[in-house]
Simulated scan of single mutants.
Amino acid sequence: MIEEMSAAMKIIARLFSVCGLLVLFILPPNRYSWMQEMDPSIMADDPSGNRKVFSLLILIIIGLIELILFIKDNKVAGKIVSLILAASAVLIWSIKYLSV
């Protein structure tokens, strides 16, 4: 029974990571980016930086989840999935927020 709960917890943790990836992917870098898409001459700045901080928090949470799963998983396939999800999160975050 403990083995089954462990597998269920791994699945739930991976689902949280995938949901975090979706949030990172969907969340725009600033709240006025839709204005720049309509009219490129508009310089829409968001000086607060709250979105960057929130997205960094999501990135850290995904990284911690996948690090724990990487350490606890005995199978190579599980370790590869953890590396892929963590690398995807870092890649999405760096493309969206370091280029702004």
Results as ranks from 00 to 15, higher is better:
residue 24 L to W: 04
residue 71 I to Q: 06
residue 61 I to E: 06
residue 6 S to A: 05
residue 72 K to P: 00
residue 48 S to P: 00
residue 34 W to L: 10
residue 5 M to Q: 14
residue 9 M to F: 14
residue 100 V to K: 09
residue 57 L to F: 13
residue 49 G to T: 07
residue 34 W to R: 08
residue 97 Y to E: 02
residue 81 V to E: 10
residue 2 I to T: 12
residue 58 I to L: 15
residue 22 L to C: 12
residue 86 A to L: 10
residue 58 I to W: 07
residue 87 A to H: 02
residue 31 R to I: 14
residue 2 I to R: 10
residue 11 I to A: 14
residue 96 K to W: 05
residue 68 I to G: 07
residue 3 E to R: 10
residue 92 I to Q: 02
residue 61 I to P: 00
residue 79 K to N: 04
residue 59 L to D: 01
residue 8 A to I: 06
residue 90 V to I: 10
residue 86 A to C: 10
residue 70 F to H: 06
residue 40 P to R: 13
residue 19 C to V: 13
residue 72 K to F: 11
residue 92 I to D: 04
residue 72 K to Y: 11
residue 64 L to P: 00
residue 5 M to H: 13
residue 3 E to K: 13
residue 59 L to Q: 01
residue 11 I to K: 14
residue 74 N to Q: 13
residue 41 S to E: 12
residue 69 L to G: 07
residue 67 L to V: 09
residue 91 L to W: 11
residue 50 N to R: 07
residue 27 L to T: 15
residue 4 E to H: 08
residue 17 S to K: 01
residue 28 P to E: 01
residue 77 A to G: 03
residue 46 D to L: 06
residue 19 C to W: 11
residue 64 L to E: 05
residue 12 I to Q: 12
residue 79 K to A: 04
residue 89 A to C: 01
residue 28 P to W: 00
residue 95 I to M: 05
residue 29 P to A: 11
residue 75 K to M: 08
residue 76 V to S: 10
residue 11 I to M: 12
residue 15 L to V: 09
residue 80 I to H: 03
residue 29 P to W: 10
residue 63 G to E: 03
residue 38 M to K: 13
residue 82 S to E: 07
residue 51 R to T: 07
residue 54 F to V: 07
residue 59 L to F: 03
residue 12 I to N: 09
residue 18 V to Q: 01
residue 99 S to L: 06
residue 24 L to P: 09
residue 67 L to F: 15
residue 78 G to A: 02
residue 20 G to T: 05
residue 45 D to T: 11
residue 2 I to N: 09
residue 38 M to V: 14
residue 66 E to M: 12
residue 51 R to Q: 09
residue 87 A to Y: 05
residue 59 L to P: 01
residue 19 C to G: 08
residue 20 G to K: 05
residue 38 M to E: 13
residue 21 L to D: 02
residue 8 A to Y: 08
